[in-house]
Computed example of a mutant assay.
Amino acid sequence: MSENTTRIAVLVGSLRAGSINRELAEVAAATAPESVQVEIVEGLAAVPFYNEDLDVEPLDPAVADLRAAIDAADAVLIVTPEYNGTMPAVVKNAIDWASRPYGAGALKGKPVAAIGASLGRYAGKWSQDDARKSLGVAGGRVVESVEVGIATSELGERTVSQVPEIVEQVRGAVADLTSAVGVAA
């Protein structure tokens, strides 16, 4: 990897093995330009719920890995389903851990964005809006131009990678997020 490579850490909000959101993240990684490394952060299921009493050295290994992955990235992409009208707890928990220590967390000043897929007719808009709000409060620079919402009912029997329009939307999201790296806040 060259020093000119842009690194994007991807947090997937669905823990399900056959998740369409996981497919979106994999499409982002597979279609990224050569100069962009998109890495899906694994192990979110092992991250304990945020508790200030646990936020001491030595950190839980899953927390240390999460913070290190985000810290090493130039930007962060959340790929989230919508559960009961908002983002899943695993996404909020990852944001909470990455926002600490207060004022100096791994998200501070990084370009961040949220995309996703959901069963609902609004294609996960509420979960993405809530993720953007939380990411901004946590210190990230929300890239507002990144908006990809997939209504999973429209896929039918196709996978995400079999729908050229979706692949193009995801590729565009990665491009917009990459363009925000290095841009002053």
Rank of each mutant, 00 (worst) to 15 (best):
G43N: 04
E23G: 04
E34D: 14
G18Y: 10
S35D: 12
S14P: 03
R16T: 12
P48M: 10
S35Y: 11
R22T: 06
I8W: 12
P33L: 11
A46N: 12
A25I: 00
V41K: 06
A17R: 15
F49I: 11
E26L: 04
A25C: 03
Q37I: 10
L66P: 01
V27Y: 06
L59E: 11
S35K: 15
R22Y: 09
N21F: 05
I8Q: 06
D55A: 15
G18E: 15
A17V: 14
D55P: 10
A30R: 08
A64V: 14
R16C: 06
A32R: 06
G18P: 12
A9P: 09
A46V: 05
N51W: 10
R7Y: 08
E26K: 11
I20A: 12
F49E: 14
G13V: 00
R16H: 12
A28E: 02
N51Q: 09
E57C: 08
A32F: 06
D65Y: 06
L59V: 04
E52G: 13
A62N: 05
G13A: 08
L11W: 03
F49W: 15
R7P: 12
A28Y: 01
L15E: 05
V27D: 05
V41T: 03
P33Q: 14
D65E: 15
A45S: 13
G13N: 09
A32D: 05
D55V: 03
P58I: 10
S35W: 15
Q37Y: 12
N4T: 14
R7W: 04
V47H: 04
R7L: 09
E57I: 15
L44H: 03
L54Q: 13
E39H: 14
V27H: 04
V10W: 00
A45P: 14
V10C: 05
V27N: 07
T6P: 02
F49S: 14
P58V: 04
Y50A: 13
V41E: 02
A25Y: 02
A25T: 00
V27C: 08
P61V: 06
N51L: 05
S35G: 14
N21R: 10
A28I: 02
E39C: 11
A30K: 08
V27G: 06
D55T: 01
V41P: 08
D60L: 02
P61C: 09
F49G: 12
L11A: 01
V41M: 05
E52Q: 13
L66Y: 01
G43S: 01
V56D: 07
E34Y: 09
P48Y: 11
S19H: 00
E42K: 13
E57H: 15
D55H: 13
P33W: 05
L59W: 11
V38T: 07
D65F: 03
S35C: 13
G18K: 14
V63Q: 07
P61A: 08
P33M: 07
A46K: 10
I20F: 13
E34Q: 10
E39R: 15
L54H: 09
T31R: 04
D65C: 06
E42R: 13
S14Q: 00
V63C: 10
A30E: 11
L44N: 04
Q37F: 08
P48F: 07
N51P: 13
N4F: 14
V36R: 03
D65S: 12
N4H: 12
N4S: 15
V63H: 07
L15Q: 06
E26R: 13
L44Y: 05
A32S: 01
S19N: 03
I20T: 10
L44V: 00
P61S: 09
Q37E: 13
